[in-house]
Design a protein around this nucleic acid. Structure first.
Lengths: 230, 230, 230, 230
DNA sequence: GATGAATGAGATTTCATTCAT
DNA sequence: AATGAATGAAATCTCATTCAT
């Protein structure tokens, strides 16, 4: 990541700075804010430069053009979650706890990184043409599937999980339960008149998600185990 | 809906037609395709007019400006799912079957109406400002929550469903499991190298979703019931 | 041609005109002036629009982009000389007179149409990439070679011209003797301190050219014929 | 000349060199290639520096600005032909042979130095403003006219050349017959579908030029002399 | 109603030149 | 001397909207 994905992170001490890496990184941060706020078509190169306390020519100097800058921003976003996932510790000796940890991590990442959610949506609106063109992405995401598989296998071996669950399918379910909640929060709020982003609502949602995923993976014999104990 | 949400629907016989409703409707269809493909900032008024076999002056005549046209397209999209939901029959006397029907309907609607999914995402990228400004949306969506509540109540009364499940929370879960699957299909395909939209993959996904939702709502005593029987 | 190649021709009655062909034609005339004055890289789209009493957007509306406008200007320039050549009458029954007419026509065309000369030079600086890309040019220029061949054949039949002269080679010589004189007039004037474009100098040059070409084509027996009788 | 006009000459051993004259000369060579390829408006300062394996600051250090660099390049180009002409030996005791030598030298210089031809054209497109501003050019080119005059005078004295031929007019003719052939080779090739730059075509053209010039200068009595004997 | 031209504001991109190190 | 970053002015091009017919 440039340095940090949060919506308005720049962290540079002043506007007269000179360190080239700083400049590039400030532009990238600014681009993430801009693209995730307005989409590709709606993003303004002027605003990106201004927010990074530099000028358009610098932006073109470092990134070539608007589209390439968008791609760089997208890759930075993905580098962010990849890095966070890699730091995530999942204790295989306790499969249920590992699932809980994974669900919580995933949801909280979406909650804490709305720019991530918006960039993914933006890229999907564009049918992932940029991501596809960037190549080399498939390998990066093997690791999370491998780890889910390991958890499932261990759970099955211990007799507490069902057999036959596809790791990717499960990953999509875990992701989906939190992603749409964050991604669609605005239309849902209008349509149903409820704010979904209060701390209380977020915690409630995490409970539901965890409950749902665990009930899904558990073997029928072990179904009675309590879920609300957290 | 204008007439139909499918990606390239127009269905008008020729360019020399006279029915004004046809023109309006063709413009609306075209706008839905355009906005759902490029977002608001990326949408082009020229393309919308051209795809509707008319000219920009007509578009401005009927809809005032680009933003109002977007709003009309968004409302049309919501009218579409509202109409479909109203026609959906849920048999209260069989709560599990009703849940199955609801899950299947919801998912298939997303599968069959990608423009719907894209418009929702676009509107959320804009923080639902247009939808909020349009007002009067809350009432429209009470009905689906009421019906879910009725199903849950009946299931609890019959002893087959758990108590304490929030209808909106459940609705969001049902929606989410399918919405993200469709919405994020392009990035997921690139990241994991698997096409999620084959008929087989879609049916598999529906099974997972149904299984997950039913396991979530069932009371623990009734948990052993088979889910794969469809 | 748009209407006329002369350096500042527009000929439109006022700036508030509406006829679309006029606009296009005014833009083309303006483009010819601009490109022949500044070259492709030095030409300014703003100036072209302003000189045509319109705005840049119209220019892009009609011609797509700067390069395509340049190509249109180039084709217009070639259409101009092609049209003039087609109207040129060469009396085959008097081969020497026909050569005289051809030489005079060619030189006077360069003298009267400096924009033509400059455009040809500009296109050659670009290695004729635009002309080559435009295609279909070869056929257009067969006619002048055919006519030169007819003149030469007749002169040979009459015993007054030599055999074995290549029509294209002769055409290039006729063209060259006048083209460089006009094309390089500015550097020649600086280097040798003589203005080559006075009426007197032009007439003198035409005499030299005619003399040189006729002495080249005449059979040796008929060499004594006077050339200065005009 | 800086060192050599050939299109891609640099000849410096590496980027870490120290000789300042080398740097200046490499920049000048690069500038000639650039200006003769793209014209003044189309030339890019970045490309000039890059091709000279240095950076823009050096360019500005040595030459001040783009326009001054262009002037330096132009002067270098003229210095090149001036030097070559000075080394050219014309045997006055054989006027016909001297003319042959002059014609051949002139043509071959154009053939071997396309950058020269292109720079002359570029400067003429700019109406020779730079050359005029550079001053002091007239004197430099007296010598070639003086030598032509000497040849003509000797030929007249020997009775083999006509009287009354203007040396500058003759020089322009000699130059023109070869200059346009090289200068306009690209458009001519497109328009007439023939490659004019094969070795064979070049030799043929030189024959034509020599023939034409000699027939022009010869007195009528001596006209029967063979020209093709080379 | 219907059409294509017209427009001005603003978008992206380029480039000669200068600066800090 | 040498380098890469930095900049502002200006270039090309786009687009929502309006106008004339």
């Amino acid at each position: 990541m440039a340095s940090d994905n949060s919506e308005n992170a720049t962290g540079n001490p002043g506007s007269g700075e000179r360190a080239p890496k700083r400049r590039r990184s400030a532009l990238l941060d600014s681009a993430i804010v801009e693209f995730s706020t307005y989409g590709i078509g709606g993003a303004r190169v002027d605003r990106i430069a201004e927010r990074a306390n530099t000028n358009k020519a610098m932006l073109y100097h470092y990134f070539g053009n608007k589209d390439d800058l968008y791609l760089a921003a997208l890759q930075d976003i993905y580098a962010g979650i990849r890095g966070a996932e890699n730091e995530l510790e999942l204790d295989l000796s306790a499969p249920e706890a590992a699932i809980r940890t994974l669900v919580a991590f995933t949801f909280r990442y979406y909650v804490d990184n709305p720019a991530f959610v918006r960039m993914i949506n933006t890229e999907n609106l564009h049918r992932a043409v940029h991501l596809r063109a960037a190549g080399d992405m498939t390998t990066l995401n093997r690791s999370i599937l491998d780890r889910i598989k390991a958890i499932l296998d261990r759970g099955v071996a211990e007799g507490i999980f069902r057999e036959g669950i596809d790791p990717l399918d499960l990953y999509i379910s875990i992701s989906a339960l939190g992603f749409t909640y964050i991604s669609n929060q605005h239309t849902l709020a209008v349509l149903f008149g409820r704010d979904l982003t209060t701390d209380e609502a977020i915690e409630k949602r995490l409970e539901t998600m965890t409950d749902m995923v665990l009930r899904f993976v558990r073997s029928d014999r072990h179904h009675a185990a309590s879920d609300s104990a957290r």
